[in-house]
Design a protein around this nucleic acid. Sequence first.
DNA 1: AACTTTGGCAACCGCTACTTA
DNA 2: TTAAGTAGCGGTTGCCAAAGT
Length: 180
Amino acid sequence: MQEEELRRGQWLEEEDEKLAMIVAILGERRWDALAKASGLKRSGKSCRLRWLNYLRPNLKHGHITADEERVIIRLQKEFGNKWSKIAKQLPGRTDNEIKNYWRSHLRKKALIYEQECFGDNSSNSQQKTSISEKGDCSSAESLANEVTLLDWIPSWSYEQSRMELHMYFCSSNLCSCYPP
DNA sequence: AACTTTGGCAACCGCTACTTA
DNA sequence: TTAAGTAGCGGTTGCCAAAGT
């Protein structure tokens, strides 16, 4: 039997409609069977991804808010790159969306910040140490958090970063010593 | 105005975990 | 118990629009 060639790339509106309709009938499972039943020339995997990341009801498609960004930063620190776990804490956001946001916005900032504020690696580690030493937070964990987060939020100036981070920690109950 | 570079996002790939027969 | 099928996850790639030169 000759295998039918599968379509790839961007989804058409017509394909979205077909997929939404078939998911409404068959439910969100057995994606391979569902893909075949729909008549779409797409893999089950592709259909599942399209549904989860774009067509699923109650998805938010707008910009990530400042609050959401704070949650992402906090949860990324807590869980690492467990995007699906992080996404569960942000209703309407997908793991793919959060992953992309992290990579394009937050991680990028870290690189620039290291170049602009700390220069080479050796002075970098020295200055990081001094940040911790100057900090008012009492727990070692808070200090570690501060140093790591300074890496993540590079567009702020050094003093601005400290102030913002104190505010962030207080709002997140990670530190009880604001104002610094 | 034309060309190049960069940024953001959607989609794909490969692997692992889970489910079912 | 185990093998095959299926779902889920995270990393990577490719496309396109905006910004820069």
